[in-house]
Design a protein around this nucleic acid. Structure first.
Length: 694
DNA sequence: GCGGCTA
DNA sequence: TAGCCGCAACGCTAA
DNA sequence: TTAGCG
């Protein structure tokens, strides 16, 4: 089952091929025999009743497939709304007969979930996409390419099958058939793939198709093009039972559909609730991958952007649409909102959600960084050209560190630079530290252009580099989310080619964006742009040039982020450091082996006599003091910071350990802000690493 | 927009 | 029953 | 420590 508890064909295949079948659930829907008794002549109702009684005594991973005794159409509709594949309707009084007959009917929510593989494409040696078709009147007709959804493993399974079937001639016939070109390989049309897709392009090809698995049980000849109207979720009729003023969008009732939320979308016409719902419907397929699987708050303005009511909602509430997922998040009592399907976005529109603000975690992994967002927030008097210039600079700096980035408007005067990352093994404090350091480096190189401090935002014609979007529970406005501001602007994804003179964020509105995004290819390689964040962090460290650790077994080590330390050059051979909190530190220059450039403001790493710190520090202890939090450090409590955001409290030398090791002393629990982190992270292991490094 | 609480 | 009231919560900096 | 900010 997938995370929502719905059956997932791709997951089933993966589980079988990996042999991880422990969590599989076995669904039983009919019983043909009981011991030696043949139940097939019995009516279905009778068979299912017996089966239900039987399964009641079975283990929990064997489940009885219940049924609805009601109008099939209504059941189908809600099944489709729940993202299920479809329903099977059966005659209650019919005996069991093999094969197709008139005693049962299958209705799918969407068709075209299966396609025939007619070839694949490569760039160089690397696999690019599958070329897919369906049978229509005896010919294999091209329906599009499938470029995503392949795990490394799935690919490894599929490639040999493809190569075995490779042939010189294209299997496709008819108009629109793909031409032979460099990197195109044909196969005999025998493999069937299960896919998912977001809709159709103008010329009828499948859009945003992703691979779910090979369909071993189905011969290619059975994959027929069907008349589009024959199946699929029909638009619900304008039922007369709907209250006055209400109108459905994707099956979701929009009440007060004509109520204006924005008085004017820069075209003199108001944007109504209905318009907003249709907007989400139109851009949902594009938007969803950036929202799905992440806790997401919404800004709701049920009375419009000038209405009295404006509020922020992050938790589920009573009476909210069942289409919206609720997710439990560590450390929060109430479940968060999450939007996992387009209908959920439409439901958001019904509740007056004019903005969506998802977390930046990896999908369905709330603790893991999935993207970084750099928010360029210009002071009012800054020329937009400077913002553009700066976004490109961030892109270049990220590229130097091996990261791929994408740009979007914020819907206001700023720009967002978004970089998808693989955050495995990197926690949020580390990711944030990375974002901060990168922004700090920019500000250091051009202090007249940038500042990191939001409080001084209004000062001078500078751009506020807001790295604080990059934290566990921090959010940034979603791509394609509207903004609750005059003109109904949208946070518009851009190609870097558009990020140049003449770009006007105000042209992207709820009205204009659906058409623009439909024929746009911007961000199409967003998923391929994922790069390991850990590596980038390492590289940034190398660029900055210092190791945070310095060896000297005779002394305690202290790494002090210089930002909050005011060094006073005392001349001679010592330096006094006066932190904002705590007592001053006294350093002999001769103690410093590395990491100190001639300019004392570059001072980051130094070691110090145990004495001058505090009496509780033993010689040989490893202590990195994180003063960036600007918190008074109570006597005897130390905070450990490995330059990647690790935080701990007091450390103690482990006697006779070789290499020298330290451990956390878990007393003084009154100092709680760090408590959580200490428990949360596997700190001891990393401290060992520290000790080894030394 | 809507459920829950209060006047 | 009409009307009112929530509907978030971080880190960071200046005061 | 608090207020203000995004």
């Amino acid at each position: 089952m997938d995370h929502t508890g719905a059956p997932d064909f791709a997951a089933l295949q993966a589980a079988i091929s990996q042999g991880t079948t422990r969590d599989l659930v076995y669904f039983v829907f009919d019983q043909l025999f009981a011991d030696n008794e043949d139940l097939r002549p019995l009516p279905l109702a009778e068979r299912k009743a017996r089966l239900k009684a039987l399964v009641a005594k079975a283990p929990a991973n064997i489940r009885f497939v219940d049924h609805f005794l009601s109008a099939g159409e209504a059941v189908l509709k809600s099944a489709c709304r729940m993202d299920l594949e479809g329903i099977v309707s059966k005659r209650l009084d019919a005996p069991y007969r093999s094969g197709r007959g008139d005693s049962w009917v299958k209705c799918k929510c969407r068709q075209g979930h299966e396609v025939v593989i007619g070839g694949w494409t490569t760039t160089g040696d690397a696999f690019r996409s599958l070329i897919a078709g369906v049978n229509r009147e005896g010919q294999l007709v091209y329906v599009g390419r499938i470029g995503t959804g392949f795990g490394r493993e799935a690919l490894a399974r599929v490639m040999p099958r493809l190569k075995a079937l490779e042939t010189d001639a294209s299997p496709f016939k008819g108009k629109g058939a793909p031409k032979k070109a460099a990197g195109v390989h044909w196969v005999r049309p025998e493999l069937v793939a299960e896919i998912e897709y977001a809709g159709f392009t103008g010329d009828g090809a499948i859009r945003q198709a992703s691979f779910k698995g090979l369909r071993e049980d189905k011969p290619a000849t059975e994959v027929q093009a069907e008349a589009p109207a024959a199946t699929g979720l029909r638009e619900p009729a304008r039922a007369s039972v709907l209250p006055r003023g209400s109108r459905p969008v994707m099956g979701v009732t929009i009440s007060q559909a004509d109520k204006p939320l924005w008085p004017d979308a820069n075209d003199g016409k108001p944007v109504t609730k209905f318009d907003l719902a249709r907007y989400y419907e139109a851009v949902g397929a594009w938007m969803l991958p950036h929202v799905k699987g992440r806790p997401c708050s919404m800004i709701r303005m049920p009375d419009g952007i000038n209405g009295a009511q404006t509020f922020f909602q992050r938790h589920g509430a009573k009476g909210q649409s069942a289409l919206i997922t609720e997710v439990e998040v560590w450390g929060d009592r109430k479940p968060y909102l999450q939007f996992d399907r387009i209908e959920a976005l439409v439901a958001a529109a019904q509740s007056g959600a004019v903005e969506l603000h998802p977390w930046n975690c990896a999908p369905f992994a709330p603790e893991q960084p999935g993207r970084l967002v750099f928010d360029l927030d210009p002071a009012p008097d800054v020329d937009f050209a400077a913002v553009i210039e700066s976004a490109r600079e961030i892109r270049d700096r990220l590229a130097q560190l091996g990261l791929v980035s994408f740009c979007k408007t914020t819907g206001g005067k700023g720009l967002h630079v978004v970089t998808p990352v693989m955050g495995q093994g990197v926690d949020w404090p580390a990711a944030k530290a990375f974002a901060r350091d990168l922004c700090k480096a920019m500000a250091a190189d051009a202090p007249h252009r940038f500042l990191l401090n939001m409080a001084k935002k209004e000062r001078a014609g500078r751009i506020f580099l807001d790295y604080l979007r990059n934290d566990r529970m921090a959010t940034a406005v979603a791509p394609l989310s509207p903004r609750g501001r005059p003109g109904a602007p949208v946070s518009m994804p851009l190609g870097w080619g558009q990020v140049k003179k003449g770009l006007d964020p105000a042209t992207f509105t709820v009205r204009t964006v659906p058409a623009l995004i439909a024929k746009s290819t911007v961000w199409e390689d967003y998923c391929d742009g994922e790069r390991p964040l850990g590596l980038a962090i390492q590289r940034l460290g190398e660029v900055e040039g210092e190791s945070p650790i310095l060896e000297n077994p005779d002394h305690a080590f202290v790494a002090v982020p210089y930002v909050n330390i005011r060094p006073s050059m005392g001349g001679g051979n010592h330096i006094d450091m006066e932190p904002d909190y705590g007592r001053p530190y006294h350093f002999q220059k001769s103690w410093i082996k590395q990491g100190l450039k001639t300019d004392p403001s570059n001072l980051r790493i130094m070691h110090v006599e145990g004495d001058s710190m505090t009496p509780t520090l033993n010689s040989g202890d490893v202590v990195l003091v994180d003063t960036s939090r600007r918190m008074p450090t109570p006597p005897g409590i130390f905070v450990l910071h490995d330059g990647m955001g690790l935080v701990a409290k007091r450390l103690e030398h482990i006697p006779n350990s070789d290499p020298p090791q330290v451990r956390i002393v878990s007393d003084n629990t009154h100092y709680s802000p760090y408590e959580r982190l200490v428990d949360e992270m596997n700190i001891v292991g990393r401290i060992r690493w520290f000790a080894r490094e030394m």
